[in-house]
């Protein structure tokens, strides 16, 4: 006699859930601990840091991305609702919107990364930090005995300034190019993970989060495309699968809700 695995679609009466729902919540529990480990590292490093930058990242872009992800959460849950109502076309539209949001998020994120890679910081022997843009090519900078740097404006941490910088380089203020001999420099680099523990945490946490977004997009893309065929044979099963994928997607958004203030705002 062939026995089927029970409760793949219907809920087990005493636990009130179908298998995959228990599975995804368990997986999310482990994800909580994964990001918990990273947050604990953030706390440890921040407590021990002599200097922790404030509003270094572009807050308007981060806020925009927060809006994008919140929107994607709503479209996600609407896609599931449509599927529960057996409105297939509507389901495809809402899920498509979710996918678009995910792609937009990644696009904005990569713009932010690129910005940071073109931004430089110098720590002088006396501990003072100067941030700005190189007025020479990176290859020159590596060879030369002096660095030519156009320092950031005084108000570069302000919301208005950052908002302007999204749409082009803001008008330069009083600053003029500094020439710093390398003998005065303790440490310099563009804003890559190695520049400081702050940027290391930023890139690692958002990078891992970005990988989760990509993973979520692959799964949701599958249920938008080939996976949606299940609708014809077992719509309830498809609704369950979309619910489970949606739980993952909501969780990834939830992580962002914490990443945004911890990395961008303070």
């Amino acid at each position: 006699m062939e026995m089927e695995i029970p409760y793949t679609v219907t809920a087990r009466p005493d636990t009130g859930a179908y298998n995959a729902k228990i599975g995804i919540w368990l997986f999310l529990a482990s994800e909580v601990m994964l990001f918990g480990g990273l947050f604990s590292a953030y706390i440890f490093l921040r407590l021990g840091a002599t200097h922790w930058p404030h509003h270094l990242l572009n807050v308007p872009m981060g806020l925009f991305n927060t809006f994008v992800l919140i929107t994607s959460s709503i479209t996600m849950v609407m896609a599931w609702t449509a599927l529960k109502m057996r409105q297939f076309q509507s389901y495809r539209r809402w899920l498509g919107a979710t996918l678009v949001c995910g792609v937009v998020f990644l696009g904005v994120k990569s713009m932010e990364y690129k910005d940071k890679f073109h931004h430089y910081g110098v720590i002088l022997n006396n501990g003072q930090e100067i941030t700005g843009h190189l007025e020479m090519s990176p290859a020159e900078a590596r060879k030369s005995q002096t660095l030519r740097i156009l320092p950031d404006a005084e108000d570069s941490g302000s919301f208005g300034h950052q908002l302007q910088s999204v749409f082009g380089r803001p008008a330069a203020g009083e600053e003029k190019v500094l020439e710093i001999p390398k003998s005065d420099i303790q440490w310099w680099s563009n804003f890559t993970p190695r520049y400081s523990t702050y940027l290391a945490t930023y890139f690692t946490m958002t990078g891992l989060h970005g990988l989760h977004i990509i993973g979520g997009l692959v799964v949701l893309g599958f249920f938008w495309g080939p996976g949606a065929k299940l609708y014809r044979t077992n719509p309830e099963h498809l609704a369950n699968r979309v619910e489970v994928a949606g739980l993952f997607w909501h969780f990834v958004d939830l992580v962002w809700i914490f990443l945004f203030p911890t990395l961008y705002l303070f």
Binding site: E31, M33, F35, G36, G37, L38
Partner: peptide, 9 residues
């Protein structure tokens, strides 16, 4: 489930 992820991070 709960102790391995911090090591992964």
């Amino acid at each position: 489930l709960l102790a391995f992820p911090p090591l992964e991070s």
